[in-house]
Each structure stands twice: as structure tokens, then as C-alpha cells.
């Protein structure tokens, strides 16, 4: 499972954890996160996230 980092504020979306509070189940792949979802910490949209290289 991959992690995606918000390039503006550093918030990490972890596919394994999802975001249940936003209705995104654990295990939800980034591509399946709704396009209108925004970073919970700073509000930027999905296109301001980058995959974190391990």
C-alpha cells in the first residue's frame, strides 16, 4: 500500500488507513479517493499530492 504526501502541508494519506472520518475505507487506493476530496489539514486538492518514495 502506498502513501501520498500533500506538497503544501505535509499531511500523509496512507492507503492502508484510508480516511474513515471522510467515508474513505481503509485500503482505498489513491485513484479511488473522490476527485473532490481535499487535504484535511490545509484544503488543497488531490493534484497537490505526491507519492512518497520509500
Amino acid at each position: 500500500m502506498r502513501k501520498w504526501e500533500c506538497v503544501v502541508c505535509g499531511f500523509i494519506y496512507d492507503e492502508a488507513e484510508g480516511m474513515p472520518e471522510d467515508g474513505i475505507a481503509p485500503g482505498t487506493a489513491w485513484e479511488d479517493v473522490p476527485e473532490d476530496w481535499v487535504c484535511p489539514d490545509c484544503g488543497v486538492s488531490k493534484d497537490d499530492f505526491e507519492m512518497v518514495e520509500l
Binding site: 503544501v8 502541508c9 489539514d41 490545509c42 484544503g43 488543497v44
Partner: peptide, 11 residues
């Protein structure tokens, strides 16, 4: 309100 943060900036 003067809010020097990103959430209000994005809204």
C-alpha cells in the same frame, strides 16, 4: 478576521 493559514486561503 485575519487568518494567515492555508485552510482559509484555499476557501
Amino acid at each position: 478576521l485575519v487568518l494567515p493559514f492555508i485552510l482559509p486561503l484555499m476557501a
